[in-house]
Design a protein around this nucleic acid. Structure first.
Lengths: 138, 138
DNA sequence: CCTTGACCCTGTAGTTGCTACAGGGTGCAT
DNA sequence: ATGCACCCTGTAGCAACTACAGGGTCAAGG
């Protein structure tokens, strides 16, 4: 029932360095130590780290993970705050998808326009190069 | 015909610090200096920085921008390399879109399942919490 | 008993692409 | 001559890790 840091890492799919990092930034509490100064974890830490990893997998940044953790500690509180956090995050994900989708069409249009030949004729380079106005007004 | 760093920044939508940063990492050459030690840029630098900014806007990371720049310098070369860079980048963008789209459905499923009430009943927290292996309280 | 090898420890520096000071100098207008 | 906007260098900070360096610990095999 007591794990080393390596075991905890394996159990949660987290690198050892990352666990130590989470401890350093206060996301995980400082664990007990063995006589040989090894960190020793129990079920509670396993749960907490799993929670963190899942939230991270869902793309929540660490400060929101922190917020979710502290919300989840007070089970009597109204879950509207949790909902708001998740909703905000969803909105951000949607914004990113929209940005990337626009990017994708630009990129594929660029790629479609490329007909081989030399770099001198390359439409991709041309599209990146500045508008060829030599007497530019600044 | 000669710009200060601030003018160059305005013309390309780049912050002054960013221009100096590009110079530091060798993406832009060290420019001439005025008698007062101010950087002095010409059309060539304006063009190069515009190129960089457009590539960045399309999401190319700096090392690929660097590659694109050096490819664009040799106009006689076959543009297949340019094409490959753009294609790789497009693939990456598509991968990110796919990841984010999967994320979005997970998140919105999570949000749909939330029916208010307290954090103790919250499906979002529940979904993040570890699979209740034994009699665990988190 | 001793050594080997896998693991653990701390602390620091690197990654990407900027951004933000601090503490000073320059250039132009008033 | 004084104010103000701009410029200079150098360094440190952001997210979220990752990767050492240089050591300690522990169980197993010879």
């Amino acid at each position: 029932m007591a794990f080393t840091i390596g075991e905890l890492g394996k159990a949660t799919g987290t690198k050892v360095e990352t666990i130590r990092y989470y401890e350093r930034i206060g996301l995980l509490a400082k664990p007990e130590r063995t006589s040989g100064n090894y960190r020793s974890y129990g079920e509670a830490e396993l749960g907490r780290l799993s929670f963190i990893r899942r939230a991270r997998d869902l793309g929540f940044p660490l400060d929101r993970v922190r917020a979710l953790l502290s919300l989840s500690d007070d089970r009597t509180r109204d879950c509207a705050m949790v909902d708001a956090l998740a909703r905000d995050h969803l909105a951000e994900v949607e914004r990113k998808i929209a940005d990337l989708t626009a990017l994708r069409s630009e990129l594929s249009a660029l790629l479609d326009s490329c007909e081989g030949g030399t770099v001198g004729d390359c439409r991709i380079i041309e599209a990146l190069a500045p508008p060829a106005t030599s007497g530019e007004t600044l």
